[in-house]
């Protein structure tokens, strides 16, 4: 046996996260929910229903992110681990947690500043291409870190969608249509990968 590539071995647990297509499937469903809920929200009559809808839906969508993560782990425990083995991933480091919190706070402050100064219209026009570029870069990072070329394709797709929808000057509505389109693509990719994973890996550990 040759001396192993330590760098490659160190990346295996991260790559294992998306071996089955479940994260893409859940991410896709989450984006469909996000885009769909905002698009549906625009059609709600402007009376008590509007208030009730916008009071309930945004917190539910925010919690949906945590819910999707929880559901992915539960599904992995049922689908993936009995076939290709159980892995308990390391908790993200302090630096990663601080970085994520910093980005979330910066985004919230920028959004609040736009709303408070009443200067949201120009940002709304540019929102779709900007969000598309950010998402696309995220996919590139994921693709490199996890050795997953299909994320590059999703990055290209969201960029193309963002530029095309940005061309229509639809503002925030275009962002929601972009989420919807990306969600459908992600869910399809996830479903295909999951089907391939299931056909290639029969359950190797049977309950006793």
């Amino acid at each position: 046996m040759q001396q192993p590539d330590l760098g490659d071995l160190a990346r295996r647990p991260t790559r294992y996260w998306n071996v089955d297509g479940l994260p893409e499937l859940m991410m896709g469903l989450l984006w469909i929910a996000w885009g769909g809920a905002w698009i549906v929200g625009q059609q709600v009559p402007h009376d008590w229903r509007w208030t009730a809808y916008w009071l309930l839906v945004p917190p539910a969508l925010a919690l949906g992110g945590f819910g999707a993560n929880w559901a992915t782990r539960r599904l992995k425990a049922r689908v993936t681990f009995p076939r290709t083995g159980y892995v308990e991933w390391k908790a993200p480091g302090r630096g990663t947690r601080i970085g994520a919190a910093g980005i979330a706070i910066a985004a919230a402050v920028a959004l609040a500043a736009m709303v408070l100064t009443g200067d949201a219209r120009p940002a709304g026009t540019m929102a779709t291409p900007i969000v598309a570029v950010i998402l696309s870069l995220g996919f590139v990072v994921l693709s490199v870190r996890q050795h997953a070329p299909h994320y590059l394709a999703l990055g290209g797709l969201v960029l193309a969608l963002g530029l095309a929808l940005g061309w229509t000057h639809g503002g925030w509505t275009s962002v929601n249509w972009m989420f919807l389109g990306l969600g459908v693509a992600c869910a399809l990719v996830g479903a295909v990968r999951l089907a391939r994973f299931l056909s290639r890996h029969p359950r190797s550990v049977e309950p006793v």
């Binding site: 046996m1 040759q2 001396q3 192993p4 330590l6 071995l9 160190a10 990346r11 295996r12 647990p13 991260t14 294992y16 681990f81 290709t84 083995g85 159980y86 892995v87 308990e88 991933w89 390391k90 908790a91 190797s204 550990v205």
Partner: peptide
């Protein structure tokens, strides 16, 4: 020893893993 180095390097990247995962990887 290469096989043991592989096992240790795999386990170094996770909190814990089961026999099947290490066997596959």
């Amino acid at each position: 020893e290469p096989a043991r180095l592989t096992i240790v390097a795999l386990l170094a990247g996770v909190e814990q893993a089961d026999f099947l995962w290490v066997l596959n990887e």
